[in-house]
Amino acid sequence: MRDTTDSIRLGTMRPGHRGRITHFDAAHLNGEGADLSDRLREMGFAENLIVEVLHQSPFGRDPIAVRVGSMTVALRRMDANIVVVTSI
């Protein structure tokens, strides 16, 4: 079991929060998630990398801007939820 208590999804984090990526889990997207996981990897998300939520949209707090490695990626919270992190 990887989903321990300190395991949270990227899409639920607030600006300023940091975490280390543990794995990708797209179960909540009913089969459309495999491609999205690949896409997140292509955009620079990978296990063990540190992510930090930098900004959120002024309108409805969605999408968010996330720093991952040396990149900043903007994405919607629903898609960010595929990324599971342990907070640090």
Binding site: R39, L40, P63, T72, V73, A74, L75, R76, M78, D79
Partner: peptide, 9 residues
Amino acid sequence: KAQTFMLEL
């Protein structure tokens, strides 16, 4: 269906 938005800043 709902779509995605993913963009490098």
